[in-house]
């Protein structure tokens, strides 16, 4: 894989992103909804007020004109402003970013760190007790929706045992060590809920990928040469089983930015997911567009990274 190839892929990403932005904007502009819906239900706000607001924010312009306005501003680095809070979109996103990265990132990390060893060990001894337990937990993990597991944890740890708070606070008043303790206490449940959900499917994929490889002859050969079991697993099996795992992790990474709508809602984590959902529900196009556009960029980026990693994991893969 040549540097020229990498460069070409990066250049190709620009028109891709542009094309995606056209589709995104069209979908958002056509999707039903209204930033000023609540005004309409108030009998004391004349209809003219709302019509004036729509006109002022250009909501009644044709879609292509709105898109051109958005694109021009974006090219100048202006993300636009939210109709609902009248704040700049980039400020809104930046406010949510640290919490999102911390909570969602930690849960992804947890999922990967737990799922890969569990999946590998399970596949090394398929249908052993360990494998069965891991599988059953995984089935529970992805057959129960997050709204349910989240609530279950709240019931047990916040209400019965009163160990953990279930309202996430973005400005903890404590300092020093106490701050870390409080931060971890309020993050445990959202991280666990998300980590379980993500990790559950990852365990199954890792197990399957390892099973595909572990039966191949070269593994037997390596074993017969007297190489230790651990070394066989790590050096010979895992590396070759990594292609599907890399694919999945690359699929998950953008979510670290996009947030997790339901989990954020349950624990009141002020992340990007909750910003996104409230903006979508009020049809606050500039905010939704800002978030999804960055998200799309990350999707493309991680797809590219995955492709590059394939070449590294299996040098025979050639991209032409």
């Amino acid at each position: 894989m040549s540097p020229a190839y990498v460069l070409r892929r990066i250049l190709l990403a620009i028109p891709s992103l542009f094309g995606i932005s056209v589709v995104l904007f069209t979908v958002l502009a056509l999707a039903p909804g209204d930033p000023f819906g609540e005004l309409m239900t108030n009998p004391n706000v004349p209809a003219s007020v709302q019509l004036a607001l729509r006109a002022k924010f250009g909501l009644d312009d044709p879609v292509y004109i709105r898109y051109v306005h958005w694109l021009m501003a974006m090219l100048h680095g202006d993300w636009g402003f939210s109709f609902v809070s009248r704040m700049n979109v980039d400020i809104l996103i930046m406010q949510r970013l640290p919490v999102t990265l911390a909570v969602i990132g930690a849960s992804q990390l947890l999922a990967v760190l737990v799922a890969i060893p569990v999946g590998v060990l399970g596949a090394a001894r398929p249908y052993s007790l360990f494998d069965q337990i891991a599988n059953t937990l995984a089935f529970i993990g992805f057959s129960l929706p997050t709204f349910f597991t989240g609530l279950l944890l709240i019931m047990v740890f916040s209400i019965r045992l009163e160990w953990l708070p279930f309202v996430f606070q973005s400005d903890l008043s404590s300092t020093g060590w106490q701050w870390w303790v409080d931060e971890i206490r309020q993050s445990i449940m959202p991280i666990a809920v998300l980590g379980l959900f993500q990790g559950a499917s990852l365990v199954r994929f890792v197990r399957s990928a390892v099973l595909d490889v572990i039966r191949l002859d070269y593994v037997t050969t390596a074993r017969s040469k007297g190489i230790g079991e651990r070394r066989v697993l790590v050096r010979h099996v895992v590396r070759n089983a990594l292609i599907p795992v890399v694919t999945l992790v690359a699929l998950q990474m953008p979510v670290v930015f996009g947030g997790a709508i339901i989990t954020e809602q349950i624990f009141r984590v002020p992340g990007i997911g909750s910003l996104l959902i409230s903006s979508i529900l009020s049809n606050d196009t500039p905010v939704v567009m800002g978030v999804t556009f960055v998200f799309a960029g990350l999707v493309i980026l991680f797809n590219l990274i995955a492709d590059l990693l394939y070449g590294f994991l299996d040098p025979r893969i050639a991209f032409r």
Binding site: P32, G33, D34, F36, G37, E38, M40, Q50, L281, N283
Partner: peptide, 10 residues
């Protein structure tokens, strides 16, 4: 969010 909106097209 749709029911209580003033979306003319919906």
């Amino acid at each position: 969010s749709v029911y209580f909106s003033s979306d003319v097209a919906n």
